[in-house]
């Protein structure tokens, strides 16, 4: 097929981007233009709010009356805030459980689907596993409230059939956080599964075949060939899963609102309640900075630790 270039478009393109071979200097304008949508969004929704949060953390501000500068008072208050400590503890438990279950679950599912199953079945399973990820958190939360209803829930019913009394999933402090962890796993495992599947498909077949020819068993091939080659993917999955998990909010807000007895109070939930129920915007901003610092620190540790276990080809 022959295409005829529009001379007007060509002219504009030439002005924006002069090729080095033409002897002209590259114009930075084109680069900035391409960059501008992302840059604008970054400034508006990430950098701007971040700087605002830093500023607000030095103020006492209730949304309704003018802000008052209070210096480091908000930061000092962090030291004695027991609920913040509890919420950070809950969030770490949630994030740790999330990373472990997603990495293990995602890898196992990917291994199962990646094996020589029928193509149609493979597509169906991939879609089925990924599908919950496409559902909004609001719908997922409602769905599971029905499933785990202590009186009418289908899950509680079948546990009863086999002689197990179902716990009060969302009102018992011992079960509320595990329930949220389970629901989160069901909802988001599809994403980790896809990453793992993509990673598995980049493992060169020649290497596994060579291992088999050398007499390695399936288990040995997995642990000494596949798994090391999967470590970059696993590292990526662990980083993004932790970052996402540490900001968990939606299911907690919809299902338990941080209760019972603050057993599902996560850091972002606490931040929200502090800001938009207690109207302590300044202190909520300080908590936001703590959350940011924790995520950054853990991510740095993950990167540092990766040198010891991530295989670099």
């Amino acid at each position: 097929m022959t295409t005829v270039a529009d001379p007007r478009v060509e002219g504009v393109a030439r002005r924006l981007w002069r090729h080095p071979s033409s002897g002209g200097r590259q114009s930075p304008l084109a680069g900035w233009l391409f960059l501008s949508p992302a840059l604008l969004l970054f400034l508006l929704f990430i950098l701007g709010p971040f700087i605002a949060a830093m500023a607000l953390s030095f103020y006492s501000y209730d949304l309704l009356t003018p802000a008052k500068f209070i210096g480091l008072d908000n930061f000092k208050a962090l030291r004695t805030d027991e609920l913040l400590l509890k919420s950070l503890g809950n969030t770490f438990i949630f994030a740790f459980a999330s990373v472990v279950t997603h990495l293990v679950g995602g890898l196992l599912l990917a291994l199962a689907v990646n094996r020589g199953v029928h193509k149609a079945l493979s597509y169906f399973v991939r879609t089925a596993i990924f599908f919950p990820f496409l559902i909004s958190w609001a719908a997922v939360a409602l769905l599971w409230k029905y499933v785990l209803d202590p009186t009418f829930g289908i899950f509680s019913y079948y546990l009863g059939v086999i002689g197990i009394t179902a716990p009060d999933w969302f009102t018992d402090p011992a079960w509320a956080l595990p329930s949220i962890i389970g629901i989160d796993f069901w909802h988001t495992i599809g994403y980790t599964f896809l990453i793992m599947l993509a990673g598995l498909q980049t493992v060169p077949a020649e290497m596994t075949e060579a291992a088999v020819v050398d007499g390695a068993s399936r288990v040995q091939t997995f642990f000494f060939v596949t798994l090391p080659l999967m470590t970059p993917t696993m590292f990526f999955a662990s980083v993004i899963t932790f970052i996402g998990a540490f900001q968990i909010f939606d299911p907690v807000q919809i299902i338990t609102q941080g209760g019972p007895n603050d057993s599902t109070m996560t850091a972002v939930m606490y931040l929200y309640q502090t800001g938009f129920q207690a109207f302590q915007i300044g202190y909520a901003s300080t908590i936001a900075l703590v959350v940011f610092a924790v995520i950054m620190l853990v991510t740095l540790i993950q990167f540092w630790g990766s040198r010891k276990w991530v295989h670099n080809a």
Binding site: A52, A55, P66, I281
Partner: peptide, 12 residues
């Protein structure tokens, strides 16, 4: 604190 710190002044 820079222009992004405008938020608290919204109360004014």
């Amino acid at each position: 604190l820079g222009a992004a710190a405008l938020a608290p002044t919204l109360g004014l």
